[in-house]
Design a protein around this nucleic acid. Structure first.
Length: 454
RNA sequence: UCCUCGGUAGCUCAAUUGGCAGAGCAAGCGGCUGUUAACCGCAAGGUUGGAGGUUCGAGUCCUCCCCGAGGAGCCA
């Protein structure tokens, strides 16, 4: 142990409290909640790793310490010394233990804390997002998010993928479909990246299997529980990979992320009251259904008057060739108890660079992965066009400027290979695994249509 | 951009047909040795989002504006 760590190491992390049963420990943290009964005060203390109840009995501590415990405002910072002991009545996470307090030092007495132990409205909580993060639910989500991100990186790093970063400032619309945030680049227009995929396609020719992972930006005027203006996405890209091979990679990948999170964040998922039984089923293989078959089943169900959550509205019919709406995604996902692959979408609803299916030019070698329980599309992927002439024709067909894509077409002239890739949205994955209904809680400081503060 | 709903105490909400603007929680004071968003008592807390209009009288009705929420489109 380093000699300069000093008193820092003297404190115990609440998540490890079970190791110290019967011992005197020091906890450094904040007062999350308080209740009391005369000479007995119950302080719920959190330290970032967990939440524990500290019990202060007047007869066990100095008069000053007891008065502090009795009067201390919520969110005051404090250092508590006490004996860890098992108690079934003790609330908290991981729970099962409480602290029999012997001393209490106030680091700072908090000002009146705006967020109380009661219901609050969305606007108020979002205005106080910098404080809301301290609440149990938000804390648990942050911990799950961090674990999901680590799993996202670990699996790729351990399976031959090389991280190659892609630019955030880009010269033109990468896919030419969605609205981009524009900024000034020394007098030239520049745009915040909406994907790193095109650059990934260059990078696979250097490293074979690559991924980029970072924030991405969409300036669409979307106000729904599934959309952010700024969100994080991991985009793997693989050389010598067909659509069929891609799906096998995706189901291995997603299963690893889910199972790792279940194993490492059981306490946090319990704090979120997440029913993990459906998540436990997320293991390969995932069911596969073609767009054609999905449309058939949607229209049969629509004709039969099937309704879909969350509002139990009738499932609308879907003419072949149109993209799924939210109710269609929910319905198709509800047919299975695992994530489901929907493959071979109509080319007209997908990006220009997707490879056509041989013999069926109207559909492309694409695939979306729909999460169960109505969480919708969390992965979108495809096999990419590998022929330079067909790619140029697609660029023209979509009225995209050839000059901007010259380098991209170039990739198909020097040792072109079949290749595929996908993008996985971090926030939608977090929402799914945490079982929360709005994406704004899956990122510490969400960027929403009408919110840039805090 | 369009559709729907909303804005009253620090917070969550109520206020009958247009007739004295009220509760709970938080904050303050007092009490309580097993509380889980404790409980009991006392006291305090208001430019009803903004502007204009109708009326003897507007939180309530009308017009415009601002802000927020949910959804559609689009997407991860």
């Amino acid at each position: 142990m380093s000699p300069i760590t000093g008193s820092y190491t003297a404190s115990v992390r609440i998540e490890n409290i079970a190791r110290y049963d019967g011992q005197e420990v020091i906890i450094q943290g904040w007062l999350q909640l308080k209740t009391g009964k005369g000479k007995l005060q119950f302080l719920r203390v959190r330290d970032g790793s967990g939440i524990i109840q500290a019990v202060v009995f007047k007869g066990n501590v100095s008069a000053e310490a007891f008065e502090a415990a009795r009067r201390l405002p919520l969110e005051s910072s404090l250092i508590v010394t006490g004996v860890a002991r098992a108690d079934q009545r003790a609330p908290g996470f991981p729970g099962g233990y409480e602290l029999d307090v012997r001393d209490l030092e106030v680091v700072q007495e908090s000002a009146e804390y705006p967020i109380g132990p009661k219901e609050h409205g969305v606007e108020f909580l979002m205005d106080n997002r910098h404080l809301w993060l301290r609440s149990t639910r938000q804390w648990a989500i942050l911990r799950v998010r961090a674990t999901i991100i680590k799993a996202i990186r670990d699996w790729l790093d351990d399976n031959g993928f090389t991280l190659v970063d892609t630019p955030i400032l880009t010269p033109a619309a990468a896919e030419g479909t969605t609205t981009l945030f524009q900024t000034d680049y020394h007098g030239m227009p520049a745009f915040l990246a909406q994907t790193g995929q095109l650059y990934n396609e260059a990078n696979i020719f250097a490293v074979g299997k690559t991924y980029c992972f970072g924030p991405t930006f969409r300036a669409e005027k979307s106000k729904t529980r599934r959309h952010l203006q700024e969100f994080w996405m991991v985009e793997p890209e693989i050389a010598f990979c067909t659509l069929e091979q891609l799906l096998e990679i995706e189901e291995q990948y997603v299963s690893y992320i889910v199972q790792t999170t279940l194993r490492k964040r059981a306490v946090e998922l319990a704090a979120l009251e997440r029913d993990t039984s459906t998540l436990a089923k997320v293991v390969p293989p995932f069911p596969r259904i073609s767009y054609d078959d999905a449309v058939t089943r949607i229209n049969a169900a629509a004709a039969a008057g099937v309704t879909v959550p969350p509002n139990d509205e009738p499932l609308p019919a879907l003419p072949w060739g149109e993209d799924f709406g939210a109710p269609h995604e929910t319905f198709v996902a509800s047919l299975f108890d695992k994530p489901v692959f929907v493959h071979h979408y109509p080319s007209q609803v997908k990006a220009f660079y997707m490879e056509s299916e041989p013999g069926r030019p109207e559909v492309c070698r694409s695939c979306d992965l729909l999460a169960p329980e109505g969480y919708g599309e969390i992965v979108g992927g495809s096999e990419r066009m590998s022929d330079p002439d067909l790619l140029l024709a697609a660029i023209d067909r979509h009225h995209l400027p050839r000059e901007a894509y010259a380098w991209y077409v170039d990739l198909r002239r020097y040792g072109s290979v079949p290749h595929s890739g996908f993008g996985l949205g971090v926030e939608r994955t977090v929402a799914w695994l945490c079982g929360i209904d709005h994406i704004r809680e899956t990122v510490p400081f969400p960027r929403l249509l009408n919110r840039l503060y805090p």
